[in-house]
Design a protein around this nucleic acid. Structure first.
Lengths: 270, 270
DNA sequence: GACAATATTCGGCATTATGGAATACAGTTT
DNA sequence: AAACTGTATTCCATAATGCCGAATATTGTC
C-alpha cells in the first residue's frame, strides 16, 4: 500500500482522501488507520489538518469522517476550466432534444475515459452513468474514438497497462481487431459501440478537436439497441458527427478541407 | 499566511491547492513559492506529491501547474453523496419548463450559500451563476430562507462573522430589518430577493426539509424584475413552494399538519 | 551562444511528524 | 450505576522526515 512519493505525510493525507472516496461512506478513524496500517494518532493528525481546510468533514452524530464540501467546490473550479464543457453545453442540450437519447461528453484521463458532462434521456429505459465516472476506453464508443486518434505508442500503452477486459460477447479483445476498428473510425469519422460494454446498449460517438487540431474530447449518444437502429441510428450518426464538428468550431478548430460550411448551423440558435 | 494546523506539510500542500483554486490559471512553481513564502524546493516536493495523486497537473508546454482532474472526480463523489441533489433533479427540470427562468439548488456551508445545482433559462437575459459558487446569505433569496430556519445563535454567528455587506440600495443591512424579514419568511414559507444582491434581479426561494424536518437546502427561481412581477411572480411563488414541498416529500419529510396532499403531485410523472 | 524563463536534484541540519499509551466521551448493555 | 464497546483526542520522547539554499538541468528566445 505504500507509494513512496516525496513528502510522506502529504502522500498519507491524500491516501486518506482516496480511501474515503473509494469507500463512499463515512469511515471511523480506526477503520482508516487500519486500512493504511498507521497509528491512530498519526491518522488523527492528518485528518484534523484536512478537516481544517474543509477537505474532510466529521459527522456530528457518529463522529466518523467523510469527504468535505470543499472538494466539490474545488472540483467545480476544475470543471469550469474546461473550455470544451462550456462550449459543448448548448449543443448537448440540442442533441438531446433532437434525438431523445442520453448524451455524454468525455475526455481521456490516465488511460481511461472520464465522463465530464451528460444530459439524460427522459425515456424510461436509461443508461446508468454518472458524471465523474471512469470506464475503460477499448469498449466504449467515446473511448474508441479517443484512442483512434492517439499515437500508436499511446494506444499500446493503454492496452498494455489496462488490458482488454471482456464485458460482453461483442467486446473487442484482440489487438488486431481493435486496430482495424480504429482505422475504420478514422476513415468514417465516428465510432459505434455495439453492446461492447453492456448488453442491449448501443452508442454513437464522434471526436471533438481544438484549434490545434488535436482530439481533446468526444461526444456520444447512447440508447437501447431496439431504438438505436435503422433510420434512428442513421439520424444519430448524422447529428452526433455534425454536433461534434460544431463544438470543434467553437473551440477554434478549422477543418483543413474547407468543405460544407459548418457556420450556418449556428443560425437561429441565439 | 501561516495557519498552524497540526501537520505542517499537509497544511502547506492544501494551501497550494487553495492558491491554485483562487488563481484560476496555471502558476509557476516560483510564483507559488513566493505567495506562500516558502523555498522553491519545499514547494516542489509538495507539488510533486500532489501531482502523483492527480490533484495537480503540470502543463506539458509551459511547465506550470494547475488543479488536477482528480479533484473534479472526487468532487463528483461528494456531489453524488447529496441525496437532495439527486431527488431534486427532475423537479428542477420541471420548474424550468413551467417558468422558463433559471433555477438554483443551494445549501448552507461555512456561513455562506453554496450553489450545488442549477438549470439555466434559455431566455436572453440570464443570471450569471456557477455551480460551486458561494454568495453571502443575507442578500440572496435562498440565503435568507436558510437563515430564517436556523437557530438565533447560528444567525448571529453568520452576521457577526460575515457582516452585512451592502450590494444594492435594497440590500438589508440592519439586523432588525433582517430579523423582521426572517419572521415574514417563516410565516409565508418562502422568501423574495428583490434586487438585494444585484440590480434588476428578483428571486423566489423556498426551503427543502429532510425526514427529520430540518431545513437542509433551498431552491430558487431567478429572473429580471421586468418579468418577475404580477401574475408571473405569483405563479413563480406557487411553483417554487410546491416544488420545494415535493422535494421535501422525496427526502422523507412528512408535514405535521397533514394538509393538502402533496402525494398527488407525483401523478403522471413516472 | 547567451540569457531568462522554467523545473529539478542534492545533502546536511534540526524541525517536525510519528506512534504507543493514556485519556476522554458517548452510548448501550447488564 | 457500573461495565463495556464504540467513537475521538491528547501527550511526549525519539529519530525520522521534511526543509532549505545552492547547484544543476531543461527549455525556449533573442
Amino acid at each position: 500500500m505504500e507509494s513512496e512519493s516525496k513528502i510522506q505525510s502529504v502522500a498519507r493525507a491524500l491516501f486518506i482522501l482516496d480511501t474515503l472516496a473509494e469507500a463512499r461512506v463515512e469511515l471511523a478513524l480506526n477503520e482508516i488507520a487500519t486500512r493504511l496500517s498507521l497509528a491512530k494518532s498519526t491518522v488523527h493528525g492528518l485528518i484534523s489538518t484536512l478537516k481544517d481546510f474543509g477537505y474532510i468533514e466529521q459527522s456530528t452524530f457518529t463522529g466518523k469522517y467523510k469527504l468535505g464540501i470543499r472538494l466539490f467546490e474545488v472540483g467545480q473550479i476544475v470543471a469550469h476550466g474546461w473550455e470544451v464543457r462550456a462550449i459543448a453545453a448548448p449543443y448537448i442540450n440540442k442533441l438531446l432534444e433532437e434525438l431523445g437519447e442520453t448524451v455524454h461528453l468525455v475526455v481521456l484521463d490516465r488511460l481511461e475515459v472520464l465522463y465530464i458532462d451528460k444530459r439524460e434521456s427522459v425515456q424510461s429505459l436509461r443508461i446508468v452513468s454518472q458524471v465523474g465516472m471512469r470506464l475503460p476506453a477499448h469498449c466504449t464508443g467515446v473511448g474508441k474514438v479517443l484512442m483512434a486518434y492517439l499515437s500508436p505508442e499511446q494506444r499500446t500503452e493503454i492496452i498494455s497497462r489496462k488490458g482488454l477486459a471482456q464485458f460482453t460477447r461483442n467486446t473487442l479483445t484482440e489487438v488486431k481487431a481493435l486496430e482495424d476498428e480504429f482505422a475504420r473510425i478514422r476513415a468514417q469519422g465516428f465510432a459505434i459501440d455495439n453492446e461492447e460494454i453492456m448488453e442491449s446498449l448501443r452508442c454513437v460517438a464522434a471526436p471533438i478537436r481544438d484549434q490545434s487540431g488535436e482530439v481533446v474530447s468526444a461526444i456520444s449518444v447512447s440508447g437501447p439497441v431496439f431504438r438505436m437502429k435503422d433510420e434512428h441510428l442513421e439520424k444519430a450518426i448524422q447529428c452526433v458527427t455534425k454536433t461534434a464538428e460544431e463544438i470543434s468550431s467553437g473551440l477554434g478548430y478549422r477543418s483543413k478541407e474547407r468543405s460544407r460550411s459548418t457556420s450556418d448551423s449556428f443560425s437561429g440558435r441565439f
